[in-house]
């Protein structure tokens, strides 16, 4: 048995080094909050950096060992998207982040694989960097936000990106950063995260499906983090909406629920009942292991959590923990 984690973030060492003495890294800075904890300052955005975020690859591997995780498919955390910056800056930060992941992959090929960060505000630049990491560096794909400077990914300007990702066989992992749609309504009780992440992911599923991206790119490989949000639970209502839309106004060829099994989903749904529902909705070959390392929304013992489930067969546990990602990523 193995375990391969597709949802494992990196705050790159190059950032920590550059900001060690109060310096900046491509305009990104590091501050301390009232409790002395490090905060990433990027433009107007501020992101908490958890204690493990500064860990070296060696420290990370020791933690993976204790968790029973064999492989991290490493992605820079969303605070490094930098979509609102000048493209030149974002190209530079993306390349440096991706090069650091590449070094981890070269040094410990059995333990690390990679998902890149891309300058999505400039589609040709994003395609160029995706090509570079896929062809030259052996990456498996990239992680991108649910919205690019407010735009959903079904906007026509992104279609060349989807075509390129399809052609390269890249896996695109969706993960929010900055405000979710809940932020504009309520910021209390951690709801921008605990409801907002799921809300944003649901909109990503709906817009890619109903906007025709999944029809235009039949071999596209997309993974929705946080179990795809409410997508599998809400697909029935999406179907009713699709059915009520006059045929001449429909873009998607089939009802949205028919596309559920076209996506991959990480298993971060917190309850066995919800995981069972997800599996039964999308198919066991579409659910993959993810942990959200090293953030506080991660489960404490994610491998044990899966292994202890009564409602999953051993084959299903193997599929989630490693087999599906072994096949998808070729690792």
């Amino acid at each position: 048995m193995r375990s391969i984690d597709i949802h494992a973030h990196l705050t790159p060492q190059c950032f920590w080094r550059a900001t060690e003495d109060g310096g900046d890294w491509h305009t990104l800075r590091r501050e301390q909050d009232a409790n002395g904890r490090p905060v990433l300052v990027s433009g107007t955005g501020r992101g908490q950096l958890p204690p493990k975020a500064s860990w070296t690859p060696e420290q990370r591997m020791a933690d993976m060992d204790s968790l029973g995780v064999d492989v991290h498919v490493v992605s820079p955390f969303g605070g490094f998207y930098n979509y609102d910056m000048d493209t030149d800056v974002t190209v530079a930060t993306s390349r440096e982040c991706n090069d650091e992941i590449s070094q981890m992959m070269q040094s410990w090929p059995e333990r690390f694989s990679g998902l890149a960060t891309l300058p999505m505000q400039d589609v040709p630049a994003a395609i160029a960097e995706l090509e570079r990491v896929m062809v030259n560096l052996g990456f498996k794909g990239a992680m991108i936000d649910d919205k690019i400077n407010g735009k959903l990914l079904d906007e026509p300007e992104f279609l060349p990106f989807w075509k390129a990702a399809e052609q390269l066989g890249a896996v695109i992992l969706f993960h929010q950063s900055g405000d979710t749609i809940v932020d504009a309504r309520i910021k209390r009780y951690h709801l921008p995260n605990s409801v907002g992440n799921l809300a944003d992911r649901t909109l990503t599923f709906a817009s890619l499906v109903m906007g025709g991206v999944m029809d235009a790119c039949p071999d596209l490989r997309i993974c929705l983090s946080h179990g795809g949000g409410y997508a599998c639970y809400g697909a029935g209502r999406m179907d009713r909406g699709w059915e009520r839309t006059p045929e001449s106004q429909r873009v998607a060829a089939d009802p949205p629920s028919q596309y559920l099994s076209r996506f991959y989903y990480d298993c971060i749904v917190y309850t066995e009942e919800s995981l069972r529902f997800l599996i039964d909705s999308v198919g066991i070959d579409r659910v993959v292991f993810g942990t959200d390392w090293p953030y506080d929304m991660a489960q404490d013992w994610p491998v044990s959590w899966i292994l202890a489930m009564d409602s999953l067969t051993q084959d299903e546990k193997d599929a989630i923990l490693w087999k599906n990602l072994e096949t998808l990523l070729g690792i």
Partner: peptide, 18 residues
């Protein structure tokens, strides 16, 4: 959801669920 998209009836079919 209106903040993100007006397309394909998503504000109703998805927005209500959220």
């Amino acid at each position: 959801a209106l903040e993100r998209t007006l397309r394909y009836g998503i504000p109703n079919s998805v927005g209500v669920v959220l």
